[in-house]
Simulated scan of single mutants.
Amino acid sequence: MNKSLPNAEDLVVTILGCGKLGTAILTGFLKSHQTSNGESTSNDSGPKAHARPLKHFIACVRTEKSAARLKALFDAESSMVTILTGENLKGVQQANVIIIGCEPSGYHEILNSSGICEAVSGKTLISILGGVTVEMLTVALYSRQPSTQITHPCNIIQVMPNIAVAICKSITTITKPNPLQSSDAIEIAHSLFLRLGHVRTLPENFVDTATVVTASSPAFFTVMLDAIATEAERAGFSRTEALELSARAMSSAAELILHGEAPDGVCKKIATTGGSTARGLKVLKDGNILDLIGDAFRATRHGQHSNC
């Protein structure tokens, strides 16, 4: 791959730390590139312009084991994906959009590495790290260089997608930009993640809560889904049938909410007084399920900064 930067209309995206979420994002980008030709079809708020073409992707990892995993996973798209091991600087130099997706505890080492500050100059840096603020990223990035020497700072955009980016069905939150951020960088972040699902823009003080709601909660929902599917299996369903029916039922409930129904309204339409569903709901209520969910929510939100 040529070391020079791509044309202004083309995007080369480097992902620093291609773990579970980074891999899912790369999978979604490749899927959207193959099916949509960059055309955004979302009705969400934010820029709606025709997305810039995605020219190439660079995945930066630390170990040969991780590189081998990615090579096997993206073998069919090898012309679109370059995998680098221990070469973060090279990956940043060759891209105009950088997504940092390492473990939250590793961002400082990456951004504080020699040459990274200069390599990201004037580019868009998108963070998908829970519990890591734009201020923390800025300090790590520029701690080697006096502020008076920074003539073309990069534009740091805080983004939180969920694992469904892999199938372009994520709900992604983007932190409201400050006035100093480039409108071009903001448009790039919106258009990239609109490829991968829905996008909402939220104030920075909502970031920790939004991370639980959008990124962590699918794991909570899946626990409920799995419990229902397991009971269906015990009644004689195959695992495949049980999972499909449970997932589609959960999707049905979600669609009703998205079409304007209130959660308690959905329950009232399903459960009749003294009926079987009402009995099941009473068991959940008596078991303090709402308190348990609240405890899980708060534990997740408060735990975001413990690994930074």
Rank of each mutant, 00 (worst) to 15 (best):
I289F: 13
R279V: 00
S191T: 11
D226T: 14
A247V: 01
P161Q: 05
S42I: 03
K71S: 11
E135C: 06
A227W: 01
T222W: 09
P177K: 14
R52L: 13
E204K: 11
T209Q: 08
P177H: 08
R248Q: 15
V81F: 05
S32W: 14
L16H: 11
I167L: 12
S114C: 08
C154E: 06
I98F: 05
E241M: 06
I171D: 01
I110R: 08
S36G: 00
A227K: 01
Q181N: 11
H33C: 01
N112Q: 03
H50R: 13
E233Y: 02
L11W: 05
I270E: 09
L73M: 12
S114M: 00
F193L: 04
S121E: 14
S114H: 15
V13L: 13
I25L: 10
P153C: 04
F29S: 06
T214H: 11
F57D: 00
L141K: 05
A219S: 14
P161N: 03
C102V: 15
T300G: 09
T201P: 00
A164Q: 04
S32V: 00
H152F: 04
L180T: 14
S183R: 13
R248T: 07
K285A: 14
S183Y: 00
Q304Y: 13
F220G: 02
I167Y: 10
S306T: 12
D208A: 15
I171P: 00
A227T: 08
R248F: 10
E103W: 11
I188R: 02
E39S: 05
H108A: 15
V212R: 06
G122P: 08
S147M: 11
T211H: 10
I174P: 07
I188Q: 01
D264K: 12
C168T: 10
F193R: 03
L84Y: 08
A59V: 02
M160T: 09
L281H: 02
A140E: 05
T277V: 08
V223I: 11
I15T: 12
L26D: 04
L54W: 03
